[in-house]
Design a protein around this nucleic acid. Sequence first.
DNA 1: CGTGAGCTTGACTTGTTTCAACCAACGTGG
DNA 2: CCACGTTGGTTGAAACAAGTCAAGCTCACG
Lengths: 247, 247
Amino acid sequence: MNATPHDIPTNRANGPASCGACPVFSNNLCNGLTQAALAAALPASAIHDHTAPARRSIWREGETVERVPVICQGWAATAITLSDGRRQILSFLLPGDLVSAALIFQTASQCSVDAITEVRYRTFPRGDIKAALRAQPDLFAAVSRILSGESMRSDRLAIDLGRRGAAERIANMILNLAERLRRRDMMAGETMDFPLRQHHIADAVGLTVVHVGNVLAEFRRARLVEINDRSLTILDPDALRRVAEAV
Amino acid sequence: MNATPHDIPTNRANGPASCGACPVFSNNLCNGLTQAALAAALPASAIHDHTAPARRSIWREGETVERVPVICQGWAATAITLSDGRRQILSFLLPGDLVSAALIFQTASQCSVDAITEVRYRTFPRGDIKAALRAQPDLFAAVSRILSGESMRSDRLAIDLGRRGAAERIANMILNLAERLRRRDMMAGETMDFPLRQHHIADAVGLTVVHVGNVLAEFRRARLVEINDRSLTILDPDALRRVAEAV
DNA sequence: CGTGAGCTTGACTTGTTTCAACCAACGTGG
DNA sequence: CCACGTTGGTTGAAACAAGTCAAGCTCACG
């Protein structure tokens, strides 16, 4: 089954070689080619593997991040928290995602990174990546694609939060996740692993947990989606897209 | 006076040399150094100057943008428009701003660019910039600083739209603009040129024109700001910051 | 067995939108 | 020079979307 966790050897010894075995690798560090190049250019010893348990914060806002992290397995989220506790999730990180392209260029992290499920990730030395970026045109191209992709996603988030109603936002969020998972071969038909709690959704779409619950109940009643046992299936994709509305 | 429009020769003949005379140049293509390098590396003939009248759209969503644009003078905005007319302004562009760093890497523009005042801008050939990026480490550093800055701004926008109330959002917007103008030496004390109409503010903070009007009226009543004749002065910066709330 | 995290539901409050009318400033053309 | 339409701003009343508060339920976990 596609949605099953795939296993990557975690011990450092296996080093970058294991990336070749990673089923998401081809979508990895940007749609395709790239990290093969990157891995080849870096000594195996420069790459570190890590694991974070579910529900734990991986980095806090403002912390210095010495190495550039890529998610190998599990779901995580980048978020900003206001002093009074209000929180906004900026993006969900799926296997193969660079945590943030900005981290290639600067060490200060604007936002915290929180594990949603257990997360396995891998970090690369920033200096080496920057050097490789100069040397390898296709790596450069790949990173620029990531950058464009990130800015596109944050633009979409802005219009969601600024100009769309609750149902639209949530429908869009579900469709976007499904889309991203499908590209990674992590959808089984219209069904996906769905480890998000309602409070994750609420923080991602800028609503209250209660209101998210209501909207989801409405979706279920309308037979748009079915959610149980940490798995979501889209029953009526067209209708859901209609709720999510046009560009 | 600082807020006065500064004049840059518009005819191509004067080429990049005129950039040296531009008072915002030092904040330019990112806080400092960079474009000097860029200008030096590019033939004068490769740089084109343009002017757009106030209230006109410069590029529409989805249009192919062949050359990388930098704002020289005036205010512009990048925005996304939904098919039903709802609009979200993603950022205001001030003199010295690269329209979007993503345009260095890709030709498709996700969002439209609209002139607010009359805008003078300058475009550079994408290929040359990419080449210069490889050759000149400090240009590369500068562009990465722009990229981080852009992603920081869009993160702040997201938390504003997702998690803050109307007054907070508007106060933040004003403070951010003041901050950016101050870095450009375009503030006279606490007073700035303020060409924005209420509908620009509404589209930027994700509210209705009417509600923006109400909040601004409230601000005026509370003697936080004064707006007249397309100019805004912050009467009580501390109080305004208090309204804008903590990080 | 108890505790706490997550979800659901209902009643009530608040913030924001919608609709509508009206005013002032401005530019345009007769 | 005036009549006129347009654009931008203000105000008020009513409708609506989302937030808050509160209670109760399930389930996993120690």
